[in-house]
Nucleic acid binder design. Structure first.
Length: 848
RNA sequence: GCGGAUGUGGCGGAAUUGGUAGACGCGCUGGCCUUAGGAGCCAGUGGGCGAAAGCUCGUGGGGGUUCAAGUCCCUCCAUCCGCACCA
């Protein structure tokens, strides 16, 4: 007993255990994986690339706790696991910090990387550090530039002047995806629209395949797919040509409702439409239109974008001809028409489009009904009363056309097809598909990014920098303050070059790339990260790709995940990549909140992983973050919960120490005897529980990431061992063996979540390294119990629970149920209507 | 407005196929051990009535299907998240 007391007072000290294992893993490069294939199946487990700034936050702790558990589990299931790490180290925050402090972004970024790496090592995550890189390193961005040139050669990277989003605060353009509610995603400033010449990637060319290939994904959260689908915004319809006879110009418009063409009573152009001013030049409308266009240009996206805003517009004094009936209809300019969607001009059908309806009402344009709902007999229903209040927009199967010439009486569905076909035959239109998706604007007027590897030559135009001269290195500058053009423009020594083609004087492109470009291919570079002759060796890349499990936050549902899909497809088409989709399975982890709210500096509720890792150890922090709830859901961090998990780990550690010292009649961790029969009651109980836990944890790991219930199962196992350990210490060799087996199993099962403690306790008991031991398998003979607890219900209410033999037949179970006093009290004197038996589980007697 | 998700004890959450609601943990209560303990170990813990046995109510509200519903169907409510003049 003296020994028992002594053990009780031993202290679980992660500060000693954790560095010990981390040293072994680092020195032995335990998690390094070779690119040489072997008989093992590959598995590529990847968490989203971290942006290194300050120190890692709780979101990082969560994502790596999830990913690392999976990586460990896969390795011990005999797989060859690629689990790398890197840093998304170009970007605005580092540059803004540089502006404030004068410190070079490279310095602050590399300091942050060092801190991230240091902390990741203290977390004990199983990373192949030989593949580590930062996207800001010339050895990396050389290949970002190379990919840019490949896209440029293929015509997928191009320059155009366009109305683009401009953030006045960050002094740079933004991609559509980076504008949220009309504001800059990063700094929140109201975004302006500017006409600028910019670089784009032709993601629109891949719109259809980005949609189709959702079918090729194994498991992605539905909400992410839905968000991408909405963002791509595919709609089927027709392009219909309206001719302006006075000017002799054809104006095509896109419509999803060609069946409403007979109801088009006016025509509207976006203020940015290049022909608007030309149409009114020299007319009495010119001044009014010019004012309207200028006012629209000054408005922020937000001001223009709200749908509750009252419609406004100005007549152009011109008309176009409705191709279905030859009727001239008036033209207007209005900011409710968007230049970036469709053709920047619309046909307006006020009776059947709410926006057109509001405009027509305000400016007194005719509202002509051409669609009506059909009654039960198929004839049009009178909805004149409804139309006095709002447009009739519904497009049900049963709608029919009215006031539509030869098409009157036809169904809406048929009319769409027939009218489109009729117009197409005359060259006045055709069926088309339109997308909301815009091309990806990738140039940024900022310093801390990957230089765009092209040269502008007065005689040769835009010329690619030859591959052999990559990387185009980012030069040092003194002043990072953006002035509407890239700070790189001031580095004149760097800007002025000779044209690679004519050798004449030329200038480098001074814009840098959006950092989302850097992160659109990093998962490919990991496969061959030290290759300095090419971005990757094709065979190596194809061996690892696609990523089997990609884990990260849902905030990247559209941006990063869609860009990465696009890159993979484009590079596939160029014959550079075998995979068509980069991420076979996607897991989006929920946020860690504090007091129910998102952590933020302004709320002052930010807690950092490092304080918990220092106080309780990494194993506690990692287990807690997994135990708190299902990893795909948001979870609120509670310090009491951390204490609880820490207590559990300490309990297991003490158990390990005690069992290794006191269960000395057996050694090793082998399971006792083949059969459960040979064991005493306690030995059988802990063995059973151990096999049950193996089965439970394995089930929770496969297919779903139910780490919370997996950890709970190990807790149950430990509780069971505690209950029986004193009896077992008194016992014989097989009792000690059972105790060792059960305790080692707990350590083994916990290893993916608490790798240091798992390794420590396993070593105490078996002397082996747990990660070199296969994942345990449950012995079925220990899972099947001889007895079951029979639930006896009367009229669906539980009245008794009876121990019954597992192989009892239906009649036996009913007899057993009826024999119960508690049951008979409810059955006595009543007629039995039905007897339901669920074998091995339950009997329900239905009485009246 | 459109689309999606969620709703279970005092709290975080379990319940994999319709079959014991509340596993596991926190908190709380009691006991043991201890010079002491904010350490450790053991036990109890959804609400109501009851000394107990037991009865009864109970998974956001209402309705339904079923021998049986947290789970399936209808409907309403609340919260959160996307999208939002996309023709």
């Amino acid at each position: 007993m003296a020994e028992e007391n002594e053990i009780q007072h031993l202290r679980y000290d992660p500060a000693e255990i954790e560095p010990k294992w981390q040293r072994i893993w680092r020195d032995e490069k335990t998690w390094h994986v070779s690119n040489k294939p072997d008989e093992r199946a590959k598995s590529y487990v990847l968490e989203m690339l971290p942006y290194p700034s300050g120190e890692p936050h709780m979101g990082h702790l969560k994502v790596y706790s999830v990913g690392d558990a999976l990586a460990h589990y896969r390795r011990r299931r005999g797989m060859r696991v690629l689990h790398p790490m890197g840093y998304d180290s170009f970007g605005l925050p580092a540059e803004n910090f540089a502006i404030k402090t004068g410190r070079h972004p490279r310095e602050s970024t590399e300091a942050a990387i060092a801190e991230f790496r240091r902390q990741f090592e203290t977390w004990g995550i199983s990373i192949d550090w030989d593949r580590e890189f930062g996207t800001h390193q010339p050895t990396y961005y050389r290949w970002t530039q190379w990919i840019f040139l490949k896209l440029f050669e293929a015509g997928l990277a191009y320059q155009k002047e366009a109305a683009v989003n401009w953030c006045p605060n960050d002094q740079t353009v933004l991609a559509n995806e980076q504008v949220v509610d009309g504001a800059c995603e990063r700094c929140g400033a109201a975004v302006e629209i500017k006409q600028l010449k910019q670089w784009f990637f032709k993601i629109t060319e891949y719109a259809e395949r980005l949609l189709d290939d959702f079918a090729k994904l194994e498991s992605w959260p539905d909400n992410v797919i839905t968000m991408q689908r909405n963002w791509i915004g595919r709609s089927e319809g027709a392009e219909v040509v309206f001719r302006c006879e006075e000017m002799g110009i054809d104006y095509p418009v896109f419509t999803t409702r060609p069946d409403t063409l007979f109801g088009a009573t006016f025509f509207v152009m976006a203020p940015e439409h290049p022909d608007v001013l030309r149409l009114v030049e020299g007319t009495e409308q010119e001044a009014a239109v010019r004012d309207y266009v200028n006012a629209a240009a000054r408005k922020s996206k937000e001001e223009r974008g709200s749908d509750d805003k009252e419609k406004s517009g100005v007549p152009l004094g011109r008309s176009v001809v409705n191709p279905v009936n030859g009727e001239p209809i008036p033209m207007y300019v209005s900011d409710y028409v968007l230049m970036e969607y469709g053709t920047g001009a619309i046909m307006a059908v006020p009776a059947h489009d709410q926006r057109d309806y509001e405009f027509a009402n305000k400016y007194g344009v005719e509202i002509r009904q051409v669609i009506a709902p059909a009654g039960d007999d198929g004839t049009p229903v009178d909805i004149a009363g409804d139309l006095a209040r709002a447009a009739y927009v519904s497009s049900t199967e049963s709608d029919v056309l009215v006031n539509s010439g030869d098409f009157s009486g036809k169904s809406s569905v048929d009319a769409k097809r027939e009218i489109t076909g009729w117009l197409a035959a005359d060259g006045r239109g055709n069926a088309t598909v339109n997308y909301k998706l815009r091309d990806w604007l990738v140039s940024r007027q900022r310093y801390w990014g990957c230089p765009i590897p092209v040269v502008h030559c007065p005689s040769c135009g835009t010329v690619a920098v030859p591959e052999a001269r990559l990387p185009v290195e980012l030069p040092d500058v003194d002043d990072y303050v953006p002035k509407g053009k890239s700070p790189l423009a001031a580095a004149t020594d760097w800007v002025n070059v000779t044209c690679p083609e004519c050798k004449g004087p030329a200038e480098r492109e001074t814009d840098t790339m959006d950092t989302f470009v850097d992160s659109s291919w990093y998962f490919m570079r990991y496969t061959d990260a030290r290759n300095d002759r090419e971005a990757w060796h094709r065979a190596v890349l194809n061996e690892w790709m696609p990523v089997d499990n990609y884990i990260g936050g849902v905030e990247h549902a559209i941006l990063h995940l869609m860009y990465a899909r696009f890159f993979t497809k484009a590079l596939h088409d160029l014959g550079l990549v075998g995979a068509v989709e980069p991420f076979k399975n996607l897991f989006t982890q929920g946020m860690i909140t504090r007091d129910g709210a998102k952590m933020s500096k302004s709320k002052g509720n930010v807690i950092s992983p490092s304080s918990y890792v220092e106080r309780y150890g990494a194993d506690t922090a990692r287990c807690y973050i997994l135990f708190i709830g299902p990893p795909d859901q948001d979870a609120d961090w509670a310090d009491e919960g951390v204490e609880g998990v820490h207590r559990f780990l300490a309990r297991l550690w003490r158990l390990g120490v005690e069992v290794s010292r006191r269960a000395e009649n057996a050694s090793g961790v082998l399971a006792p005897g083949d059969s459960a029969d040979a064991l005493g009651e306690s030995a059988l109980a802990v063995s059973r529980k151990a096999h049950w836990a193996i089965d439970k944890v394995t089930g929770d790991m496969v297919g779903r990431f139910a780490f919370n219930t997996a950890i709970a199962a190990v807790m149950e196992l430990v509780n069971e061992i505690y209950k029986h350990k004193d009896a077992l210490y008194q016992g014989a060799a097989e009792d000690h063996a059972a105790l060792r087996f059960a305790t080692a199993t707990a350590a083994s099962l916990l290893f993916p979540f608490a790798p240091h403690l798992g390794a420590e306790v396993y070593e105490m008991l078996g002397g082996e390294r747990v990660w070199e031991v296969n994942w345990p398998t449950a012995d079925q003979s220990f899972l099947a119990a001889d007895t079951i607890t029979l639930i006896v219900q009367v009229n669906g209410k539980v009245r008794d629970k009876i121990e019954a033999s597992a192989d009892a037949g239906q009649d036996d179970l009913i007899a057993l149920a009826r024999a119960s006093e508690r049951v008979s009290a409810h059955v006595e004197g009543k007629e039995t209507v039905k007897e339901i038996v669920v074998p091995g589980k339950l009997v329900n007697l239905v009485v009246r």
